[in-house]
Design a protein around this nucleic acid. Sequence first.
DNA 1: ATTAATCTGAAATGTTTGTTTTAAAATTAG
DNA 2: CTAATTTTAAAACAAACATTTCAGATTAAT
Lengths: 220, 220
Amino acid sequence: MAGWLTFQSKYDINLKHTFQIYTTFADIMARNVEFDEDRAIQKAMEVFWRKGYGGASMRDLTDAMQINASSLYNTIGDKHQLFIKCITNYVHTRMEETLAHSSKIKSPIKAVIGLINDCVNTILYSDNHCLAIKTTFELASTDPDIKVLLKQDSDFTHGFLLKLIQQAIELKEITSDTDAETLTSFILSAFTGWHESYIIHHDPVRIKKMAKYLITQISQ
Amino acid sequence: MAGWLTFQSKYDINLKHTFQIYTTFADIMARNVEFDEDRAIQKAMEVFWRKGYGGASMRDLTDAMQINASSLYNTIGDKHQLFIKCITNYVHTRMEETLAHSSKIKSPIKAVIGLINDCVNTILYSDNHCLAIKTTFELASTDPDIKVLLKQDSDFTHGFLLKLIQQAIELKEITSDTDAETLTSFILSAFTGWHESYIIHHDPVRIKKMAKYLITQISQ
DNA sequence: ATTAATCTGAAATGTTTGTTTTAAAATTAG
DNA sequence: CTAATTTTAAAACAAACATTTCAGATTAAT
């Protein structure tokens, strides 16, 4: 219990910190970061996925990431910054997957049906429930930063599906009285409900039947 | 810092606790609980509504309930028991409201449409988002007790709507190829999606349009 | 009025939280 | 090798957490 919080040492600490900030990207690097940040973020995401933001402690996170707290704070930042990185990563991955799917489209309506079936498969066969939805209900109302990210993700998916539906309408694969915008919102919000249903009832048949009903409704 | 943790006092404490348990509903009552438990539960529910289970601290709760922590622990129990009471209360209130609505039914299909419009109004004009949905995504996957309660609620609402839809099909107000069960699940899960949509986009028109689309789809 | 029991409020409990510090190990440049 | 600098691990940190204790206020029944 020595007096390590003297003026002298406090001054040294501040100096070091200041210096650190300005030399992070400097030419002279004494040592490189040991851990793979992408991999660590992935592990952290899985913890947030399972426990939620509030439910995940820093010890849960650093255990899963297999790094020390000091390394985490030196590279990524605090818990909130870590979560932002996780959500961003998750959202971007989803966007890339969505775009990847669009490359092998045969017809717009088939692409829409494929998207619906993908959603069903995710619900039934992925043990972690959608991080975006979970976060929406946990944090979006109170955390503006998170909300912006989730809205970007939502808008992207919306825009993607909207194009498909507009094309389908033009090609008369869909003959809907309802505007494409509403149809798009309707389909996407159905997905969220299916997630909830599966958490409560664990009934794959129920999800599949709802998907089938939605598909017949929109293709008429 | 006196030695109040002597064997004597520890024994007294244990005795008191044991005694308390067996005399909670005894004939001799020296003093009644001062606070209105229903009112306190209501206040606690509002805190959980806003902050979630993990996000609400005991101080948040006791402040809102305007009771001391010791009173809370003596009467209701710990945080989890309090939450169980809140959810139970919320779920029962919803059931009563649902049944109250059913008394003024003109026709099954009108009752279904009424239910859909009620949901829209709740989303748009109640500042607290559905506690059941929020809790589903926060806790249902990890907390068995909570999950049972939420499933009961879900099943009740499902059963209620199912009857209406079956009646509507019999009266040929609905001419659906799809079974009543699926139609019921589909409608209820749509509600969840609308909640999420409104949290992210705050767009009343979007919600209203989706509701209108759903109504035209089921009434054909 | 006395007694016996219970409730209440403030303070204290030990634990866990997110975060920081310290010292040593590690790495690169000269 | 030496010097400079960074990363790392373990421990320490204060604050916040849920929960308990206890003395005194309060009440119901005798």
